[in-house]
Structure formats: C-alpha cells, structure tokens
C-alpha cells in the first residue's frame, strides 16, 4: 500500500493498515495491525494479476424499475427504534458529533 498507483513499491506497512482502518472507522489492536500488514501484502500481491485483464465492455441489459410514488405502510417508529441501544423522543441517540 506504500506504492504509488503505478506500483513501484508493494510493501504494506503498519502505517498503511492504520490509515485504511481509520478510513473504515475500525479500531485495531497493535497485534492486529502487524498481522494484517503481512496478510494484506500477500493478498494484494495476488490481486495484482488483475492487471492482465483486458478492458471489457459489460453488456448490461438493464432497465430502470419504477413504482408509483404512493404512501404505503412502513415500519412504525417504535419498531424502527426497537434495536437501538439508546433513543430519545422517538429519535436514535448517537454520540456527540465532535
């Protein structure tokens, strides 16, 4: 992951793992960081074979699916909140934003 996108250095260091973990909002213990660095290097090295794949057009036979914009029954507020660890006045209660 230390490499430039053209792939001059493909070693994966602890800092790279910590950076991606921060982007993904997952705390990691130090031993997890070290283990993942080794594993990611091996896995990304294997993924590098994708470089040999020719550009291919996807022949997507897709159509948009629309439905009428009508009011219909949905989850009740109480049901939607039923699994939340904390709620207040009919809202989810989360941690402070900053």
């Amino acid at each position: 992951m230390s490499e430039t996108p053209d792939g001059t250095d493909d070693s994966v260091g602890a800092d790279d793992v910590r950076h991606v973990a921060e982007l993904a909002r997952v705390d990691l213990a130090d031993e997890e960081v070290a283990e993942f660095a080794d594993q990611f290097e091996e896995i990304l090295d294997y993924f590098a074979a994708l470089d040999e794949v020719p550009e291919t057009d996807a022949d997507a036979e897709l159509v948009n699916v629309m439905r009428a914009d009508e009011v219909r029954e949905g989850l009740s507020q109480a049901a939607a909140l039923s699994n939340a660890p904390d709620s207040e006045g009919g809202y989810f209660r989360g941690p402070r934003v900053s």
Binding site: A21, E22, A24, R25, V26, D27, L28, A29, N83, A84, P85, D86, F92, R93, G94, P95, R96, V97, S98
Partner: peptide, 24 residues
Amino acid sequence: FDGVRYGESGDGGDWNESFAAARE
C-alpha cells in the same frame, strides 16, 4: 453497523471514535 441503530454502542468519545470502538 455503527452501534447506534443496532448493536452495542461504542462508549465514549465523539462520533468517529465511538463508531470505530463499536466496530473493533
């Protein structure tokens, strides 16, 4: 899976710290 709508809340800290703790 952020510990707000379901799951265990990641206690303490701000939004990002709490999410990261819940997911760890």
